[in-house]
Write a protein that binds this DNA or RNA. Structure first.
Length: 242
DNA sequence: GACTGCTTGTAACCACGGAC
DNA sequence: GTCCGTGGTTACAAGCAGTC
């Protein structure tokens, strides 16, 4: 509450309102506090950003001044999952080996050479090539085969699982565009997302079948109970089922 | 507590088939 | 031929029990 009238930074008019917005020494009418990019009214927003005498909503500030992914050079949104390597920041899906393109997982070892990310195996290849044989032929054409038996397992976060499961309930068989959208939302690669949906469909089928077998078993048990003194063959089939 | 071996769940992969 | 789905398999990671 001010005793002297202050000038609104946006409209230049004195502010006679009971309340005003004061950001870094500049004042606004509540009705004048808008994002300078999208013009969204920020009066009731939980936060806003102020830079070079311009006000921004959260999203536009991130777009304009936010960190950029060191791989794709696109802006990193506040909601994006990221990985950090030294002072570099990557989208989760962009944090992949520059040689083989494989997305790197949490806890996995990697190398950072001249702002390029390398998985452990390709980094070791590079080191080996430099120190041992300069070119033995096998690594140049298909060096990945050497490490093909080493399968790297992605560990999903709880949030990623929630997003995937929510989408699975809506559509268990999403098309390519939906897969890309879900991949973007989770920060996973499209391939990993696709495999997750494949496995989930298989799991669902499996779990549908298991209860039926259980029902069958329960049915047999109830039959057994109904025919209280049945023959030994019944009990033997019972044990087989279990 | 540390180590080992076994079991279980599941991500990733492969082979195959169908649709286009 | 390419793309995508399914079913089956492989390999990884975590949990658990047993042993020292």
């Amino acid at each position: 509450l001010k005793t002297e009238l202050r000038i609104c930074t946006a409209c230049g008019e004195p502010i006679a309102d009971k309340y005003l917005f004061d950001i870094d020494g500049c004042a606004w009418h509540g009705s004048c506090l808008r994002c300078s990019v999208c013009l969204t009214l920020l009066e009731r927003q939980p936060s806003c950003y102020f830079r070079d005498r311009h006000v921004y909503c959260r999203a536009d500030y991130a777009k304009t001044f936010g960190a950029k992914c060191s791989k794709c050079c696109r802006t990193i949104a506040a909601s994006d999952w990221v990985r950090k390597a030294r002072d570099l920041v990557f989208h989760l899906a962009c944090f992949s080996c520059d040689t083989c393109g494989r997305q790197l997982s949490t806890g996995e070892q990697f190398a950072l050479i001249d702002d390029k990310v390398m998985c452990r195996s390709h980094y070791m290849d590079t080191v080996d090539d430099g120190s041992n044989s300069s070119d033995d032929g096998c690594s140049s054409s298909d060096g990945y085969n050497k490490n093909k038996s080493k399968r790297v397992r992605t560990t999903f976060t709880e949030e990623q699982i929630q997003i995937l499961q929510a989408n699975f309930q809506i559509d268990s068989n999403p098309d390519g565009q939906d897969l890309e959208r879900i991949a973007l939302a989770t920060g996973l690669s499209k391939r990993v997302t696709q495999v997750w949906f494949q496995n989930s469909r298989a799991r669902q089928k499996k779990h549908v079948h298991v209860p039926r077998a259980q029902d069958l078993f329960n049915g047999m048990r109830s039959d057994l109970n109904n025919n209280n003194h049945s023959t030994n063959s019944c009990s033997s089939s019972n044990s087989n089922t279990s």
